[in-house]
């Protein structure tokens, strides 16, 4: 057995995965070759020390976030990404605002829900709630944690359909967010804003800048859902240039459906 062949057995040797025959051959070579023997010993000791490195344990918050999120996912699409807060005081404040909105809504519902005509107070309250929702959505969309930004998208879904600030933040998220899941959620959240011309232009711009195939497909689906016929040049460009076969197929499908 050569030195080269011996070294190919080292990985199995360290992990006790050698069969009897290879073990004998390896030991014979190590007995005769000092270089390989020393290397096997040095790297073997390092391998054992790697196994002695303490295993990191996740914090307790991970489990509660998972179960909350799973429950939300099962309860409905709108809240599927909703996960509880667990960190900084700033985030805590955002959630306190959110809790305030919930209480406010409950109060509004209880006090005025059955009245046939809206009073000026009710209109004012509703406006305040909308402003608070906008504030929470915009704040969360700026967070560093992807989970928090997903919550922001979830809040954006509840914003007024004519809220241009939330729309702008969502389009920015679709174009620039580092996390594909956040981008996908933001694409879904654009549906309520469909009537705005800014939405349509924003979707087309986002499509040209997008590099993740999953998001490209989601944007193409959205173009078809919203019947955005002026998307033809962008779709033809994707059909020719997209690196992913799935994206090209979807673009072709979209072109047929938009005709």
């Amino acid at each position: 057995m050569t030195c080269e062949e011996t070294k190919q057995l080292f990985a199995d040797y360290w992990s006790d995965g050698l069969n009897g025959e290879d073990e004998i051959k390896l030991q014979e070579h190590l007995g005769a070759c000092e270089g390989c023997r020393k290397e096997a010993e040095r790297l073997g000791a390092l391998w054992r020390d790697l196994g002695a490195l303490p295993a990191e344990q996740p914090g307790p918050g991970l489990r509660s976030r998972f179960y909350d999120s799973l429950a939300a996912f099962r309860s409905g699409a709108d809240d599927r990404f909703s996960q509880p807060s667990h960190r900084s005081p700033a985030k805590q404040m955002v959630w306190q605002i959110a809790a305030g909105i919930a209480l406010l809504l409950a109060g509004v519902g209880a006090g005025y829900g059955l009245r046939p005509n809206q009073s000026p107070e009710l209109s004012q309250l509703r406006e305040e709630v909308a402003n608070m929702r906008q504030l929470v959505a915009l704040s969360l969309l700026q967070q560093q944690s992807a989970s928090e930004r997903l919550r922001g998208v979830s809040y954006a879904l509840r914003a007024e359909p004519n809220d241009s600030e939330v729309l702008g933040a969502l389009l920015d998220t679709v174009k620039r967010d580092s996390n594909v899941n956040v981008r996908l959620a933001a694409v879904d959240a654009l549906h309520p804003f469909a009537s705005s011309p800014a939405t349509r232009n924003g979707i087309l711009q986002a499509l040209t800048k997008q590099d993740a195939p999953l998001v490209q497909v989601a944007l193409i689906d959205l173009l078809v859902d919203l019947k955005i016929k002026q998307a033809e040049p962008e779709l033809r460009q994707l059909l020719q240039n997209a690196g992913d076969a799935g994206v090209r197929q979807r673009a072709e499908w979209a072109l047929e459906n938009l005709q």
Binding site: A55, E56, Q57, P58, G59, G61, L62, R63, R65, F66, S69, L70, F73, F81, Q83, R87, S145, A146, S147, N179, N181
Partner: peptide, 29 residues
């Protein structure tokens, strides 16, 4: 599997917060 996944991510990223986010991300994917 969440502990093993967490160890994988924390070994690759060395930040606990990012590792926890990624574990969550895996289960939603």
């Amino acid at each position: 599997h969440h502990r093993a996944l967490f160890r994988y991510f924390v070994s690759m990223s060395r930040t606990r917060e990012m590792a926890e986010d990624l574990v969550q991300d895996v289960f939603f994917r």
